[in-house]
Design a protein around this nucleic acid. Sequence first.
DNA 1: TTTTGAGTTGTTCGA
DNA 2: GTCGAACAACTCAAA
Length: 443
Amino acid sequence: MTSVLWFRRDLRISDHPALNAAADAGPVLGLFVIDPLVWDQAGPVRRAWVAASLQALRDETGGHLVLRYGDPVAVLPAVAREIGAGTVHITRETTPFGLARDARVAAALDDAGLARVGTGTPYAVDPGSVRSQKGDPYQVFTPFSRGWREIGWEPPLPAPDVSWLDLPEDTAAEQALADALAEAPLTLPTAGTAAALERMTWFRNEAIGDYADLRDRPGVDGTSRMSPYLKIGSVHPRQLLAEVDPAGKFATEIAWREFYADVLWHRPASAWTDLRDLPLRYDDPTDLIEAWRQGRTGFPIVDAGMRQLLGEGWMHNRVRMITASFLTKDLHAWWPVGARHFLDHLIDGDVASNSHGWQWTAGTGTDASPYFRVFNPITQGLKFDSDGDYIRRWVPELAHLPGSAVHEPWKHPLGYEADYPRPVVDHAVERQVALERYAERGD
DNA sequence: TTTTGAGTTGTTCGA
DNA sequence: GTCGAACAACTCAAA
């Protein structure tokens, strides 16, 4: 029987259980729907990454990827009818947005007399399935990760033989793809499964030994950089876990991704609201938030990170924490303001990891009340970018300063020669304000 | 039921 | 320069 495989965040053909299910049943039409509501919200680099990943998937299918532009609620029944398919196969969604969209599409498919089959999820262990001995979902990472490893996962599936179907091109979709690709920065990673696995092999052979030491240094290429591939589904986490020690540090990073997906599964509102209702008092300092977005706060490592985000669509994890701490603890803004900006621009922006990473920084997340978690952007810079290379790469106004002097331009006679902004706040003062607000919560 | 130990990623201060 | 303690009190998981 003919079916449609609706690709979403599973842009690959290997280790793809839903594709296997469709291919086992008969000929398959591979479809991706460019939904303008999602597409237009994304920044140019994020769009370029999706476009490049679609192009890679098209290559992997031998050119048989059909693109459509529009609302999936209208597109899916129309395409299924056009090709004579009775079933739409998907990888099951787990996020609130994805579940709501799938529910609307499912209703439309029902009305059209079409079946829908969900197989697998983008996770090694499906969200909702790791439970404590009492049967409750875990609220804390470490016990979750024990339960997660106990459940375990299957080895990756090979790519199936697929009899692909085609339809005439949708001009609007092809144009959207071409426009997005035209805006790709030179720093965009090579998209697709093969590039992902090649990078993973390099990481495993060359970098994983130094991972614990180098992963915190934003000026060093010491992380796997698998997150953009995982986000778009060019690889499934099973394929990465098969390459490493399941008890090791890298597998633990995968477990963090799965933990946050699990938390979001049980608490969908936590995507955009405080997981723990403390409540904290927030400000809305519009001009300062805009300075933060643009990387013009006068704190070098904050500005370097925010500019890397806009330029590359990626930010080093250490710097994500520093910039997030700055927005929430120095500017006292509500974390979703920052989470929204990150999600719009990060090529690896994933709602579960993004929002819960932000909640961790803001102190509203899963781990217990570390009220004192206020990053000092200057000492963090000196500690993790001690040679200053990261700053010089992203903040040209400071590129003339030597070594670690870039972190404290106010101490250098030539620090402001190139019109670098002065610090927009006094960190020591704002740190005290943040601590006081934490102490007054609920009063 | 009660108790106990633990909880990703920090900073500052004083010895 | 290095190191350990203090920094609120709380929630969770499991014994």
